[in-house]
């Protein structure tokens, strides 16, 4: 009995030892596979502008050192591939699957150290300070993206896009990597906790009801003025015309 038991344990132990090593071998293979998959995708879809070794060209900046987060953001929001060079990237339908995006990100990350894609733990919004997030948002973000995140104009045709549909991950990545003209908010200037506070604020406020009624775009007095002229004055003048019309 004892002998049988020992034999079983021994076989089991040997088996697990062997399989675990092969499992390790599989995971590192997957990583290497991911990178090479990413490289393939890169050569097909990105190298024309970013160069065969991602060193950049006249049309596009270098990707060496931008990190996985930048790729996940740009490709994950459909900004990349760019519709045409020379214009500001805009959100478009995403053409890569998440697996492909991960692969691209892994490839670019392998070229040089840069900000990594935030994990779910890093994006945990429990314990964030909503009010502090608001103060930080108004100081660092509202001047470009507007008080409600509806976006705004920059110089010479550039613009800060609306952030009302961005996911927390995309918001985090944007702050971290500074896409296009957006400045880079490194962890030394906006700590990860502060970034989460801001994300908590953005995601709370954009889902807030408009207690007064139609939001009119959350753009401020311009749309309010148009509304009062067209709807308010229009309604009242329509009644005035009714008052003056001859009765049959």
């Amino acid at each position: 009995m004892v002998l049988l038991f020992a034999a079983l344990v021994g076989t089991g132990g040997l088996y697990s030892a062997l399989t675990s090593t092969s499992a390790q071998a599989t995971s590192s293979d997957a990583s290497a596979q991911e990178i090479s998959h990413g490289r393939q995708l890169f050569l097909e879809g990105c190298a024309t502008c970013h160069g065969l070794n991602a060193q950049g060209s006249a049309n596009a900046p270098t990707l060496i050192g931008v990190g996985a987060a930048a790729v996940d953001f740009q490709v994950g929001t459909g900004r990349m591939p760019l519709a045409r060079p020379g214009t500001e990237a805009e959100t478009k339908p995403v053409i890569y699957t998440q697996t492909e995006i991960d692969a691209l990100a892994a490839y670019v990350a392998s070229l040089g150290a840069g900000p990594a894609i935030p994990s779910d733990d890093q994006l945990d919004l429990t314990g964030t300070n909503l009010q502090r997030g608001g103060e930080l948002f108004r100081t660092n973000c509202a001047q470009c993206h507007n008080f409600a995140g509806e976006g705004g104009a920059l110089a010479f045709g550039a613009y800060a896009p609306s952030i009302t549909t961005a996911t927390p991950k995309q918001l985090y990545e944007a702050m971290l990597t500074g896409p296009e003209q957006m400045p880079v908010f490194a962890d030394g200037t906006l700590t990860p906790q502060q970034k989460l506070d801001i994300i908590k604020f953005i995601t709370t406020v954009r889902n807030e009801p408009n207690p007064g009624g139609l939001a009119l775009g959350r753009l401020g007095p311009v749309t309010e003025g148009l509304f009062v002229w067209v709807v308010g004055l229009g309604a009242v003048i329509a009644v005035a015309i009714w008052i003056g019309v001859k009765v049959s």
Partner: peptide
Amino acid sequence: VSYQPLRAVDIPIGGLVS
């Protein structure tokens, strides 16, 4: 807002701090 002092290494190229 948070009144933290800054070292040069904290600020990346392309960074903006109010």
